[in-house]
Simulated assay, not measured.
Amino acid sequence: MFIYEYKVNPKPQQIVAINEAIRTAQFVRNKVLRFWMDNRGIGKTEMFRYNTSLRKQFKFVEDLNCHACQTAVERVLRAVNRFYDNCKKQKPGKKGYPQFKKHSRSVEYKVSGWKLSDNQKHITFTDKKGIGNLKLIGSRDLNFYSLEQIKRVRIIRRADGYYVQFSIQLDPRDTVEPITPSQKAVGIDVGIKYFLADSQGNIEHNPQFYRSGEQQLNRLNRRKSKKFKRGKPQSKTYHKALIRYARAHLKISRQREEFVKRVALRLIKSNDLVAYENLNVQGMVKNRHLAKSISDAGWSTFRHWLEYFGYKYGKVTVAVAPHNTSQICSNCGEKVQKSLSTRTHVCPHCNYVEDRDINASLNILQRGLSTVGHTGSYKLGEFDPLAGLEQSYSVKIGL
């Protein structure tokens, strides 16, 4: 799926209609979730039937397109299935029990409830909420795709305005030309001092967008807090201060995502294989001393884009176990204990000296190369390559 996003500038009455549609979708979701909680064990059929009864019972629910109501039910189903999957897999900690939504920011339509203009520059929402016609502001041209390829349309409310997203059924690999193999492989080690260091000796500095904008965020937060009145309706000045604070956060998140996207694309285009650590970021941010720096680095977002671009351009991405990648000497293989503050790797066994992160990236590349050849009939560790010739034939070897 491809997601194309356009900015829209709705009129005041259209903003009221969009917010009403978002609240209605939230209402349907919460009512269906309560129905599931009160009748544990019901399935998808019962949830959709309950959604139909809600449309007959409430006029404002009937005014929303039926497919938009169905997508609200599908969100409940995804939350319930994710909870059961976590329970079956015995995920440590909280299992993600479905929660009620209080501040939803989007409403999603399927193939009905909207209509594009002939030049694909305007969209009209045809349900009874009264959103009407919206001009699409963006550089993407929808004329390249047929209406049958557009599977979902979503209206999103953000701090800086409203957006319309189109989910287009399209394989990302069909949109790019084949890239000539670079015949290179790289291992990358992400960190806090440096954003990453690779096995080729290159270092990408950490821009620390949140740290750079933290002073401004704190100032905007103080202004917002001074205008807050507990137990009373909030004033217009408070809401204006709240929007300014939210926009500052949105700017930082966009800066971070664009940065990791650029770095991931460069790595994928310049290498045929990229090996990286399979980090448990969710567990690492529980360290209160490093949580802010880890979140500011955006490791999870970087991995997401790395894997996406790897699939798009037909490159190999390998996640390896991160254990002892910084402790083992990449030259002789001996383990050299060092604290986190020690930034230079000095091996007493072979006298090899290298930057700590580059030494780790070399170990990551070695593990990635030893893992990628065993991705066929067997997983790594499930077979002995020396047990017999007939067994090795059934294993897919090579890049």
Rank of each mutant, 00 (worst) to 15 (best):
N143A: 15
Y393G: 09
F309I: 07
T71W: 11
A321F: 11
V28C: 04
T342P: 08
R219A: 09
S112F: 10
E334S: 15
R154Y: 04
E5H: 10
G398V: 12
G298Q: 09
I179L: 15
F100R: 04
H122D: 04
F302R: 05
F302A: 03
A17H: 03
K379R: 13
K91D: 08
Q366S: 14
K102I: 08
D63H: 08
K335G: 01
P322T: 10
F195A: 00
K232Q: 13
Y238C: 00
S392C: 15
E5Y: 07
F144Q: 11
L290F: 05
N39L: 05
R158Q: 12
E204Q: 13
H67S: 12
E354P: 00
S182A: 15
P385H: 14
G373D: 14
D141H: 12
R222C: 08
K31V: 02
I243Y: 03
S339C: 04
L369F: 06
K226M: 06
D189Q: 03
A297S: 15
N51Q: 10
V176I: 10
N9E: 07
S392M: 15
K193P: 04
S199V: 03
S293Q: 11
R173S: 08
K396N: 13
L273C: 10
H304N: 09
V32P: 01
K292E: 00
Y393A: 09
M1R: 11
H323W: 09
A297P: 06
P98N: 06
K110Y: 06
V190Q: 03
V28M: 02
Y311D: 13
H67C: 15
C69H: 01
D141P: 08
I150G: 01
L242I: 02
A321L: 13
S225T: 12
V372H: 11
E5M: 14
I397H: 15
S53D: 09
V190E: 01
F2V: 14
